[in-house]
Nucleic acid binder design. Structure first.
Ligand code: MN
Ligand code: MN
Ligand code: MN
Ligand code: MN
Lengths: 217, 217
DNA sequence: TTTAATTTTTAGGTATGCCTAAATTTAATA
DNA sequence: TATTAAATTTAGGCATACCTAAAAATTAAA
């Protein structure tokens, strides 16, 4: 059995591994988890003792097979709860993360399987992220960041990388939603501003915004 | 802000106060919370410092106005979640208590108000217990225990006192459910066995069982 | 390759929420 | 009322999960 804190660490290690496929550093973990490097060191020892991670002093950490399995379970719970909050309780997509952050730690496999059924076995959450099934399987997203597209290409917005409140509210304000078709009209080479067409309207996005939008071409 | 443990103490003090309207003893709390009297003493000091209870050494404890308000909030959450689990996720009434015991600690007033609306503002939970509204108001149950009825009287089962798994499964096995009409046919004075008629069938209940059934006459 | 900067760990400390064993207070009994 | 029993508190410890400050290891720069 893992504590809430251990679960948060494992989830974060998983997400940091996903980005760059090397071992995860103490400082990066501390940064993401809003804690201090010395606290991370403490926790990595504990997780290592529980065989959830491999850890060598000064060399960073990686999830074990067991740890990866646990991480995916927690992510499944998080995304199912987010889906519940948006689909059933009418929350907006920028309000659900913090609540799901708590709900993901509720212990009951029966609860999750019944929630999954109640929601009709969804395969993506409100942010377009895939929801692992009960065996931990989920489709790898063969998605391209808008920032990597070239002029003239187009795609459907399938997920967002950043799920922070300000970013999601920016999208809402500009009426950009998952499922929308987006055309890349022009990319200014100098400042990397993206001119797009969306719902028959033109607008300009910074590269930072474009980087956080994933399209399925 | 209260910790999960503090919330559990407050809820239990509320429930013990409800039964006998005197102050709640350290040992009774320890018993109910599956902990040791010395741990209770520690916690009562902390709750007293937070103005959630009044506490005098060796004299027991009582909730403050603030504590009572908090207790009712937690009970509201617990019962709304139990209702959700039974009504929406198809759990049976004997499976929901332990899960609600966790869910009641999720912090988000918006979540509870939206859950309440989603459930259609229910006023009783699956065990017939009243659900406080957002202002903490709930109807006092003017219910009589079956054990206090006399021969010839009848009533509708509106709630159960004991919500333990074995008791609820006993009721299921004997097809006794909330909403059922029950007639008291006979009470054996010597061993206090209750002969009842229920769904046109006669059956015999021990006084212990009868004590845990509340009827609305 | 020596020095400097950065990263990471260690040492020592705090608050929470438990525990056991011993002391103290209160209640019950003789 | 004196004695005994029961309830409660105190003392001292333990595990978790943090923290700051200092030391050690690694990496980058000169
Ligand atoms: Mn979390
Ligand atoms: Mn999400
Ligand atoms: Mn609880
Ligand atoms: Mn209930």
């Amino acid at each position: 059995m893992l504590t809430q804190s251990e679960e948060n660490y494992i989830k974060e290690i998983f997400s940091l591994e996903d980005d760059r496929n090397i071992s995860v550093s103490t400082n990066d973990l501390a940064e993401k988890l809003n804690t201090k490097p010395s606290s991370v060191t403490d926790m990595l020892r504990k997780l290592s003792a529980k065989d959830m991670v491999s850890y060598t002093k000064y060399k960073g950490t990686n999830l074990s097979e067991l740890g990866r399995k646990k991480a995916i379970e927690i992510i499944r719970k998080h995304r199912l709860w987010e889906t519940f909050l948006v689909e059933k309780l009418n929350f907006s997509w920028d309000e659900v993360h913090d609540i799901a952050e708590q709900l993901e730690h509720i212990q009951s496999t029966q609860l999750i399987s019944k929630l999954d059924a109640f929601l009709g076995h969804p395969d993506v959450d409100p942010h377009g992220d895939p929801i692992p099934d009960e065996h931990g399987r989920f489709q790898l997203k063969k998605q391209t960041s808008l920032a990597d597209l070239s002029i003239g290409s187009q795609g459907v917005l399938v997920s967002v990388k950043d799920s922070s409140v300000p970013f999601l509210q920016y999208l809402d304000k500009n009426q950009i939603a998952i499922g929308d078709l987006i055309h890349v009209i022009d990319i200014e080479p100098f400042d990397r501003l993206f001119a797009i067409e969306h719902k028959s309207k033109r607008m300009v996005l910074s590269e930072n915004i474009a980087r956080n939008l994933y399209l399925n071409q």
